[in-house]
Amino acid sequence: MTVNSTPKKSKELIRPMPANWWLQKRTYFLFMVRELTCVFVGGYAVFLLILVGRANDAQVFSGLLHSPLSIGLHLIALPMVVYHSITWFNLTPKVMVVWRGEERVSPLLIAGSNYVAWLMISFLVAWIAFKAE
């Protein structure tokens, strides 16, 4: 008997996925918005890189921060990054389940402490910046 060595192709069904699948349901859409906040997070890192690169020239540095392009991009990126913060803090209790003895630490407490930390850090950074003024 000869063995036919050509492998048989399996007949599994690969359902075609339309590229706009994430526009078809609100939850899918919000998921995609959450994932795409990373573009603004990374984009701002690039902006900081440019800013640092110009930090030895007072005029260029100031001009960059006052340019309409910078202001416009900030106004788009800031809400997206805030959305990243909120979704990130709300997901933490789902990723990190903490037990105290037999009792599970309330997810609200974990998310809540994230918001408290966010508030305190924001005040601290603002205080340092305005104190230097």
Partner: peptide, 18 residues
């Protein structure tokens, strides 16, 4: 880091200075 520090830093560079 992005969740905790970026919004306030963006507020400084994008709103407080302009």
């Amino acid at each position: 880091v992005a969740a905790l520090f970026l919004p306030i830093t963006m507020f400084l560079t994008g709103i407080a200075v302009p």
